[in-house]
């Protein structure tokens, strides 16, 4: 019983992870138009919504870590970036969530804070490794801003369907 419930939510998260890459490839010309870069973060949306709407989903932190490891290995080949950051944003979510009652507006705001932290950390790590030479004054308007805007729109459209899906998968026995 419990195993099956776990599997379907996991399948959803893996699917969102792969969708991130495919959508970025399909809309590559639109999303990466100079100077703006928009990064699709459906997996993060999935993780945050699973945290709120499937609270008894076991080992979410570990699953975020494993997904992060696959994400690193499959997409960039640099291990240790998302492996570390996906669990961290879940901890951040948990810490912020205790101050509020989870309404859609609150979850949206938390999601944006998570993304800001995530993108800034990824930028910091890439600078640290010498994989980019972008300056902070370019990063904020060219990447962080458009990424937040895109993901806010995606959040507005996907909040209800994803919530229903997660609730349904969570109650499937």
């Amino acid at each position: 019983m419990r195993l099956r419930e776990k599997i379907w939510l996991n399948v959803l998260l893996v699917f969102l992870m792969l969708l991130d890459g495919s959508l970025s490839y399909i809309f590559g010309g639109t999303l990466h138009r100079y100077p703006d870069t928009m990064i699709i973060r459906l997996l993060v949306l999935g993780l945050v919504l699973v945290y709120f709407f499937a609270p008894d989903f076991p080992h979410l932190l570990w699953i975020a870590l494993i997904l992060g490891l696959f994400y690193d290995s499959f997409y960039t080949g640099i291990l240790g970036v998302y492996t570390f950051l996906f669990p961290l944003i879940l901890l951040l979510t948990r810490w912020i969530a205790q101050f509020f009652t989870p309404a859609p507006l609150v979850i949206g705001a938390i999601y944006l804070i998570d993304l800001t932290a995530l993108e800034s950390c990824v930028y910091g790590m890439n600078t640290f490794m010498g994989l980019t030479t972008m300056s902070l004054s370019d990063f904020i308007p060219d990447i962080l801003g458009p990424t937040l805007a895109l993901n806010l729109v995606l959040f507005i459209f996907l909040y209800l369907p994803l919530r229903q899906l997660i609730l349904k998968l969570d109650s499937t026995y």
């Binding site: 890459g21 970025s24 490839y25 699709i40 997409y75 960039t76 080949g77 990824v122 994989l131 980019t132």
Partner: peptide
């Protein structure tokens, strides 16, 4: 054939 690309643009990777 191209399968996918990395969502973030830090590494310009295709798979």
């Amino acid at each position: 054939a191209v399968l996918t690309r990395s969502p973030a643009n830090w590494q310009n990777n295709l798979v």
